[in-house]
Structure formats: structure tokens, C-alpha cells
Design a protein around this nucleic acid. Structure first.
Length: 445
RNA sequence: GCCCCCAUGGUGUAACGGUUAGCACGGGAGCCUUUCACGCUCCAAGCGGGAGUUCGACUCUCCCUGGGGGUACCA
């Protein structure tokens, strides 16, 4: 089995493209087959080497690997010319100067549902000769049988007048030469498939098996795009999602296995079957991705989480800092707003200060907490901090939050933070006392 | 316009001729609780419409409606 994935090399690996890549990869790897990349790099404006490289990076981040060197369409011009010549000689294709306007005029005369048929000329673009009778049937692994009557099909242009080839022709020839057995792509290609099938037919070659995936939409049901937020895997990565979570979520967009929602890569490879892919379009729902990402995040060891946070924040994140936030964040990006105070000092949130210090006895509680913490025995760990702070609560006959919130405000500057004992212990005694003093002083009295 | 695909709660899906239509996200209520979360319990919410076929349709057929794609000398 040889499966191929053809990303559109525009720099950003679109989420829909990523899912297609994933399904190709699962199909290939799950069956001990090979995955080859075919790069449609004929649009030099967008398909720059840098953009192609970005696509490869994004695939690598997702953990999708491929076999051998990618096939670049632009590098196969000579082979394409040869096949063109062959079709021309066999009478399966012909040159024609007919333009889109000519095609329209032809339809005006023969009816809209009537496919365009041209007369062979000495020059012009090359069109594939579509038989007048009969039909081409697409046997799709996901959709079953779709029939296209030849009478409805225009003779497709397969090469421009300048000799450069067009997609529907090139893709068929390239896949043929690469020995591709399975083509899994977006449903937007379903209508193109008969044209490609006709190329194989004209060549007397057997086509690969096809599987057309339902398209992905944004939350509003429209085509997924920038205005829906993250639309590419690069953006997902920047937003702090884990590749394993993205992979799992993407797999679930159009496919599933029973009641399972969390599936490891191994399970995905073992259970995935293209035949089971849904036929209806799916919407990309970031809320579910966030939830799933949180699940994966909480599974990481503190050291591993710290490593990923360090990479994402570009700051050295200690394992302890990572650990105390682990069950409170859903993405890597959630870490800094929650724990940045450990690194850069308390946040400046006047409203929070007002709310917490405005309560009766808040400053006294804070002062008392300071004294207890100053006198707490070594080691200054979570247990010691808890003991000290709980003692303050008891001594004052107060509610826990009457003591904890002022301390939280002092060290974090906000009313939201990781556990107070953990946070204080992580900050250390010296820094904690310094921050409490600073707040006490700043709040006057 | 023409060709083609699709249609289960807000979202992703399961059920493949006979189930009280299942699971998950999200939403609501509650428990837990030092904030925020996590976790746990419970609740609301669905077969687009109409004809058939059948003893029996979410499941099969047709029509309609709605959504999507294609219709390039783009990929």
C-alpha cells in the first residue's frame, strides 16, 4: 500500500489539510504501508521553498512522517510532456484554441448540461477527449459509488498552450509513476476525480483507490478561515496545544471508534479505517480541543510539562512551577497568565486589591500570616506553609479565604493563582515575605 | 444555470429494519473546595419536511428544503 498526501504549499498547514494528512498517515502506518508526499508547487507565488518547508515542519510537529523524497510536480515537466505526446498521438487528446467563452457559447447552443466537445486544431491548449457516450464511475471508499455521465463532462484542458500541464493531468501521471494505491483527499476533489480517471483510462492504466473526506467548517458552518481564530496547525501550536491532543482531536473530526474519545496514536493507527469516516462535513470546535488538550496536559510528568512550557514561553520553567499549575491549565498558553507572578513579580490589578483588602481585617490577617510564615520551620515546603497559614486561620477564628486571599494578592497581585500553599512554597520564604511587606506598605496604614 | 456530495441535540459522533435513540464537548444544577481549576453526581437538549416500501423505519426509495463542493489555459 502506498498512500499519498498532497498539501497545498502555501506556508500554513490548514487544519483541514492537517486532518487529511493525518488520515493518510493513519491509513498508511496502520497497514504497514508507505506515505509519500506530493507537492503541488507550480504556483511559484505561494509555493516558495520557505512555504514548503513550513508545511513539512508542521507535519513533523504533528508527528506525521513520510517515506522517501517528496514528489515535486514542477520537477516532472519532461515526463508530463512525454505523456501528453503519447495521448495526442493516440487521439485521446487534441489541441484546441477554444476559450472559456467558446465553451459558454457552445453550451448556449447545446444546453447547459451538455459537456463541451472541441475540434482538433494545429495549436492551442491540449484537451482530453471525453467519450460522448457512457459514464465514469468513482468507487469511493467512503462515499460508495458516484456516477458521472460523460455527456455532462467538458473535455478538460490538461495542458496550456505553452505546454505547462494542469493539475488534473499532472496528479494522475505523478500518482501513477509513484505507484500510489490510495488517494485520500478532501471532498472538493470529488468532481475532479472523473477527469483524473479519464486520464488513467486514456493511458490504459489502473487508477488508485479513492477516499474523499468531508470538508471541515468553522463554528458558523462556513468554510474554516482566519476569522474563526486558529485555522492552521502553526496557529494551534502557538496557542499552546499539544501535538498529541491536536492529533487525537483531528482524528475525531469525521471518524470515531465507539464511545472512545481519548485515543493514543497507537490506538488510532490500529483502529482507524477510512471506510468508517463519516460522510457529512464537520465543524472545528475549539472548545472540545481545549478540553482534550487539558486531558493530555494533566497526563504529562512535571518534568515533561516543564520542558514544553519552557519551549512555549521561552522562559526557564522549573518543574515545580509546572506541577502546581498542571490541573489548572488547558493549554500551554494558560500557564503564563496564571503563574507569571512566580517569575516577574505580582501582577498589577487595582480592582483585585480593592476587593481583597477592602474586607475587614484583611491587612491584619496578612500581617499575621507574614509573622507565621517568617517563623515557620525549615524546610519551607508545602506542608510547612499550610501548617503556618492554617494556624493563622484558627487563631483568628476566620474563614480560610479571609487569610488566603490577602496572601494570594500579595504574592500574585491577583485573586486567581495556583494553590496558595504550593505557590508560597514555590516562591520561597524570602520572596514571599518581601512581597507581603511590599503590599502592606503600599496599602498604607 | 448545469453537474456532484451531504443531512441524528448547540458541536463531534453511535445505533446499519425492531433500543427508554448511546457516548463525548459545550450548557444548567449540585457536591468537593483557599481563588481558579480538576474530580464526582444529576438535568435539559436530537433523528430537517413530505410521500412511499415494510408487520415495523434514524436506518431503504423518491420528492422538497437546507448546507457544501465542482463547473479555470488554479491547485
Amino acid at each position: 500500500m502506498r498512500v499519498r498526501f498532497a498539501p497545498s504549499p502555501t506556508g500554513a498547514l490548514h487544519i483541514g489539510g492537517a486532518r487529511t494528512a493525518l488520515y493518510n498517515w493513519l491509513l498508511a502506518r496502520g497497514n504497514g504501508g508507505e506515505l509519500v508526499l506530493r507537492v503541488e508547487d507550480t504556483d511559484r507565488e505561494r509555493s516558495t521553498p520557505e512555504n514548503v518547508e513550513q508545511i513539512f515542519d508542521a507535519l513533523g510537529w504533528l508527528g506525521i512522517d513520510w517515506d522517501g523524497d517528496p514528489v515535486f510536480q514542477s520537477r516532472r515537466a519532461e515526463r508530463h510532456r512525454g505523456v501528453l505526446e503519447q495521448l495526442l498521438e493516440a487521439g485521446r487528446a487534441y489541441r484546441s484554441t477554444a476559450t472559456a467563452d467558446d465553451v459558454r457559447a457552445w453550451k448556449a447552443q447545446h444546453g447547459d448540461e451538455r459537456g463541451f466537445r472541441g475540434e482538433p486544431q494545429e495549436e492551442g491548449a491540449i484537451r482530453l477527449r471525453v467519450p460522448d457516450e457512457g459514464e465514469t464511475v468513482v468507487e469511493d471508499l467512503i462515499r460508495g459509488t458516484t456516477t458521472f455521465r460523460h455527456a455532462h463532462l467538458d473535455d478538460p484542458v490538461i495542458a496550456r498552450a505553452d505546454g505547462s500541464v494542469l493539475y488534473n493531468f499532472a496528479v494522475a501521471v505523478d500518482d501513477l509513476d509513484a505507484g500510489i494505491t490510495h488517494v485520500v483527499r478532501g471532498e472538493d476533489h470529488l468532481s475532479n476525480t472523473p477527469k483524473q480517471l479519464l486520464v488513467y483510462e486514456a493511458l490504459g492504466e489502473a487508477p488508485p483507490r479513492y477516499a474523499h473526506l468531508p470538508l471541515l467548517h468553522g463554528p458558523d458552518g462556513r468554510k474554516l478561515s482566519k476569522r474563526h481564530g486558529a485555522a492552521s496547525v502553526q496557529e494551534l501550536r502557538d496557542a499552546g496545544y499539544l501535538p498529541e491532543a491536536v492529533r487525537n482531536y483531528l482524528a475525531l473530526l469525521g471518524w470515531g471508534h465507539g464511545d472512545d474519545t481519548k485515543l493514543s496514536t497507537e490506538e488510532l493507527q490500529r483502529l482507524f479505517r477510512v471506510e468508517d469516516v463519516a460522510r457529512n462535513p464537520a465543524r472545528f470546535d475549539e472548545a472540545k480541543l481545549r478540553w482534550l488538550n487539558g486531558l493530555y496536559l494533566r497526563e504529562l510528568s512535571p518534568d515533561e510539562l516543564a520542558r514544553r512550557l519552557t519551549e512555549h514561553t521561552q522562559r526557564q520553567v522549573p518543574a515545580q512551577a509546572a506541577q502546581i499549575t498542571q490541573e489548572k491549565i488547558q493549554t500551554l498558553a494558560d500557564f503564563w497568565p496564571l503563574a507569571g507572578f512566580l517569575f516577574d513579580g505580582p501582577a498589577d490589578d487595582p480592582a483585585a486589591r480593592e476587593r481583597v483588602l477592602g474586607r475587614d481585617g484583611a491587612r491584619d490577617a496578612l500581617a499575621q500570616a507574614r509573622a507565621e510564615l517568617a517563623g515557620a520551620p525549615e524546610p519551607f515546603d508545602v506542608a510547612a506553609v499550610e501548617h503556618a497559614l492554617r494556624h493563622v486561620v484558627e487563631a483568628r477564628g476566620a474563614k480560610p479565604k479571609d487569610v488566603f486571599q490577602p496572601v494570594r494578592l500579595a504574592i500574585a497581585g491577583t485573586t486567581v493563582s495556583p494553590g496558595i500553599f504550593e505557590s508560597v512554597a514555590t516562591l520561597g520564604r524570602e520572596e514571599t515575605l518581601r512581597r507581603i511587606d511590599a503590599l502592606l506598605e503600599a496599602s498604607g496604614a
